[in-house]
């Protein structure tokens, strides 16, 4: 049901793009106006969100410790899963962001007769996530060649590596295929695993399907409905240099692709996709576990909150205390 809703949404976007691309002025809208708008929403929204998060303080030091603490000198601490130094935190974050460390830990629990609980290693989600994210990253970097003149070395290198199979002409870019694969794996997992299926929202299916449609339109454009790459580059460079132009011979499929990318950019800051920024700010991951060693300050700590005082306590129980030979302040 929710998959269907999401699918319909994405199909509607595609239809809109196809219609707009053929009506007079439509190409100007998608090719010259929308990209700026979408990009502005993306950047503005992203920054606003991150600034919004940063406005709230981190009152307490609450890392989730995933290994031995630093305590006695002869006990080996787990420096990265339970970091006590900034360096350790940096490594922990790097492992988290680039390797999905926490997902790598994943297990799958099953209950059998007995009752008996069994925990198995479960790396599928980790693997699917890696395929998806790294493919996406590669595709994005590869697209920089359209914006930049001359094309930087690392973009060329990545594009070269991506196409190293040298199959077909133009040669097949692996990342495009693995991106589609990654999306499909994540999508299927979401639809098949009962627990995940039950919690999934349109908010979860929609971005996957949107990215899928972007990838597929890109692949169609490159290999099947061949668009004129020179015109595309002309258009994109025009955008990048703030002199947008609409060259005559760009196919409709390109405008579909561009329109969907704009949709994704504009949707990004208001969606769960903001986990891209949030992961860096998560207090359970980006803080050192040194709260007994270095005092952490809470900006809204209320000094007016005092414990029930000893004086009041003694006043209430003085006679009992004296009888029990417990020292008192006032006789």
């Amino acid at each position: 049901m929710k998959v269907l809703q999401s699918l319909l949404l994405v199909l509607a976007l595609i239809v809109i793009a196809l219609v707009v691309a053929v009506i007079p002025g439509g190409q100007t809208l998608i090719g010259k106006v929308l990209p700026y708008l979408a990009f502005a929403v993306f950047i503005g929204g992203f920054i606003a969100k991150v600034v919004g998060w940063s406005r709230s303080p981190v009152p307490f030091r609450i890392p989730t410790t995933a290994g031995q603490e630093e305590s006695l000198p002869w006990i080996k601490p787990n420096r990265f899963d339970n970091p006590s130094t900034t360096f350790g935190v940096i490594v922990r974050m790097l492992l988290e962001v680039t390797m999905f460390r926490s997902l790598f830990r994943n297990t799958k629990a099953e209950i059998h007769d007995g009752p008996k609980l069994v925990y198995g290693s479960s790396k599928y989600l980790w693997l699917f996530a890696l395929i998806f994210h790294y493919s996406f990253l590669t595709v994005v970097i590869r697209h920089l060649r359209l914006f930049l003149n001359p094309v930087p070395g690392f973009v060329q290198a990545i594009s070269f590596a991506d196409g190293f199979l040298q199959v077909g002409s133009p040669s097949v870019m692996i990342s495009g295929l693995t991106l589609v694969l990654g999306v499909l794996l994540l999508l299927l997992r979401r639809m098949i695993r009962p627990q995940v299926r039950y919690i999934s929202l349109v908010n979860d299916y929609f971005p996957l399907l949107l990215i899928l449609s972007i990838a597929v339109s890109g692949i169609l454009m490159r290999y099947f409905l061949r668009v004129d790459i020179v015109s595309v580059k002309q258009l994109i460079v025009g955008l990048a240099t703030f002199h947008p132009v609409i060259p005559g011979q760009v196919g409709a499929i390109f405008f579909v692709h561009l329109f969907l990318v704009c949709c994704l950019m504009a949707y990004f800051p208001f969606s769960k996709l903001m986990h891209m920024g949030g992961v860096f700010l998560s207090p359970t991951r980006n803080m050192a576990n040194n709260s007994r060693k270095v005092r952490h300050i809470n900006p809204w700590n209320d000094p007016a909150i005092k414990p029930h005082s000893y004086a009041d306590y003694e006043d209430e129980f003085r006679e009992f205390m004296k009888e029990a030979e417990i020292p008192v302040e006032k006789e």
Binding site: K49, W53, P59, L125, I199, L201, G278
Partner: peptide, 22 residues
């Protein structure tokens, strides 16, 4: 407004379900 943790945790969940059976 007082806890960044709460804000981030409200915004970032992707419902991957890794936590489900933990």
């Amino acid at each position: 407004d007082k806890f960044r943790s709460l804000k981030i945790f409200m915004d970032c969940c992707v419902r991957c379900g890794a936590c489900a059976d933990k």
